[in-house]
Amino acid sequence: MLKGSLSHYSPLSQLMMSLLVVVGSFMLCMFAGSVLAYLIFDVNIFTDATSLDINGDSVNLSVLKFYQVIYSTGMFIIPPFIIAYFVHNKILSYLFLDKKSSASQYIFAILIIVVALPAINLLADINSHLQLPEFLSGVEEWMRNSEDQAEIITKKFLVMETPFDLLVNLILIAVIPALGEELLFRGVIQRIFSNMTKNVHWGIIITAFLFAALHMQFFGLLPRMAMGILFGYLLVWTKSLWVPILAHLINNGMAVCMSYFIYKGKLPEDIENFGGDNTSVWISGFISMILLSILLFSLYGSRERQNE
C-alpha cells in the first residue's frame, strides 16, 4: 500500500521526493494546459511562443492568466496532496487542514497583516537600495531586469475595467496563490526543514527564504521573507493552515482591490505606498513593528492559554 509508505524516510529523502513530485506535476499540468489552451484559445505555444510574450504586440492576457492558473495548480496545489499521501496516513492532518481555528485567531491574522503593511513597506524601501559589489555588477543588472520584467507583468495583469475583472484577479492573484503557496511552503516544506534541523524556528526561516526567492524579485526579497516568517509562525501557533491561508489571501487581496480602486480613481495613487514615502517610512515602520509585536505576543499568549 503506497499511502504513508514513505513516512519512515529521512527529511532529506522526503525533500528530494517532494521536489520530484513538484517538477513532475508542473510538467504534466503545463502540457495539459498547452493542449487546453489550443482547444480553448486556438493558441499553440509550441509554434507561436510570442503569444506568451508580455512585451509583444499580440500578447493575449486571457491566455497568460490561464497559464498562471495552470502553473499555480501544477506547482503548488496538486503536489502537497500527493506528497502528504505518500508520507502520512492522514492527508488533511499532515497538511494542517483538519483543524478549525477560533474566530479570534482569524481576526488576529487579519489585524496582523493590516498592521504589518508599513513595516513591510519599510523593508521594501531598504531592500530597494541594495547594491552588490562592483564585481557582481552583471548579477545586479540581471536582478534589476528581472524585477522590471515582473513589474511589467504585474501592471498588465492589474488592469481592471469591470468588477468581473476584479473578481478574476482576486481569484488569480489572491485566492489561488494563498491556497497553493501555503499548502506547499507552510504545509510541506516548513515541516520538512523543521524536522531536518530539529528546530521549528530554522524551519520557518529557511522556508520563508525559499518562499521569497521563488518569486524571482530580488529587490523585494526582504519584505516577502518577512511575510513568509509571519505566515510560518501563524501556522505554528494556531496549528491550522487555514490561518496563514487567510492572512496570505488578505495581503494579496488588499493589493488587488487597491489597484482596482486606484485605476477607477476612487483612491489616491500613493495609498499603495502607505508609510513608504521618504519622510514617514521609518516612523510608520517602527510604529507598525511595535503594534505588530503586541499582536503577535497576544496571539502567542492565546495559544499558551489554550494549551493549558
Results as ranks from 00 to 15, higher is better:
Phe193Cys: 06
His201Arg: 14
Lys155Ala: 10
Ile91Phe: 09
Lys264Gln: 15
Asp165Gln: 13
Ala124Ser: 05
Val139Trp: 09
Phe31Cys: 13
Met143Phe: 09
Ile152Trp: 11
Glu269Ala: 15
Ile245Gly: 01
Glu147His: 10
Met160Arg: 00
Ser34Thr: 04
Ser51Lys: 14
Val59Gln: 01
Gln149Thr: 15
Asp277Thr: 06
Ile82Tyr: 02
Ser137Thr: 12
Ser302Gln: 10
Ala150Asn: 07
Phe297Met: 07
Leu52Asn: 07
Gly56Glu: 10
Ser58Gln: 05
Gly253Trp: 03
Ser240Ile: 03
Leu64Glu: 07
Lys155Asp: 12
Asn278Tyr: 15
Glu147Ile: 11
Leu61Thr: 04
Leu246Asn: 01
Lys65Tyr: 06
Ser137Arg: 15
Gln131Val: 14
Phe231Trp: 05
Thr47Cys: 13
Ser288His: 02
Asn273His: 15
Glu141Phe: 14
Val21Ala: 10
Ser13Gly: 11
Ala84Gln: 00
Gly180Pro: 01
Ala37Phe: 06
Phe274Cys: 04
Ser104Ile: 15
Leu267Ala: 01
Ala226Trp: 14
Phe81Asp: 06
Ile126Thr: 04
Leu111Glu: 10
Leu296Ile: 08
Met216Pro: 13
Leu221His: 10
Gly74Leu: 04
Asp277Pro: 03
Tyr94Thr: 03
Pro11Gly: 03
Leu117Cys: 12
Phe41Lys: 08
Ser102Ile: 05
Leu170Val: 07
Leu230Ile: 11
Tyr71Arg: 13
Asn121Met: 12
Ala84Arg: 02
Leu20Asn: 05
Phe209Gly: 06
Phe211Tyr: 01
Gly56His: 15
Ile83His: 01
Asp42Phe: 08
Val188Trp: 03
Ser102Pro: 00
Ile82Cys: 01
Asn121Asp: 06
Arg303Gln: 10
Gly232Ala: 01
Arg224Val: 00
Met75Tyr: 09
Ser259Phe: 08
Tyr260Cys: 09
Met289Asp: 06
Glu141His: 08
Tyr38Gln: 13
Asn127Lys: 09
Ser18Pro: 05
Phe81Ser: 12
Pro11Tyr: 00
Tyr106Ala: 03
Leu246Cys: 04
Ile112Leu: 11
Phe286Gly: 06
Ser72Trp: 09
Gly24Met: 04
Thr47Ala: 13
Gly285His: 02
Leu249Glu: 08
Met1Gln: 15
Lys266Gly: 12
Phe209Ile: 08
Ile229Met: 02
Lys65His: 04
Thr197Ala: 09
Phe86Glu: 02
Ile229Leu: 04
Gln105Val: 11
Leu249Lys: 07
Phe66His: 09
Leu214Ala: 15
Ser25Pro: 03
Pro79Gln: 03
Ala208Phe: 09
Phe193Asn: 03
Tyr38Glu: 12
Ile290Asn: 05
Glu140Met: 01
Ser93Val: 12
Leu241Trp: 06
Asn307Phe: 13
Arg303Trp: 10
Ile192Cys: 00
Ser302Pro: 08
Ile204Gly: 00
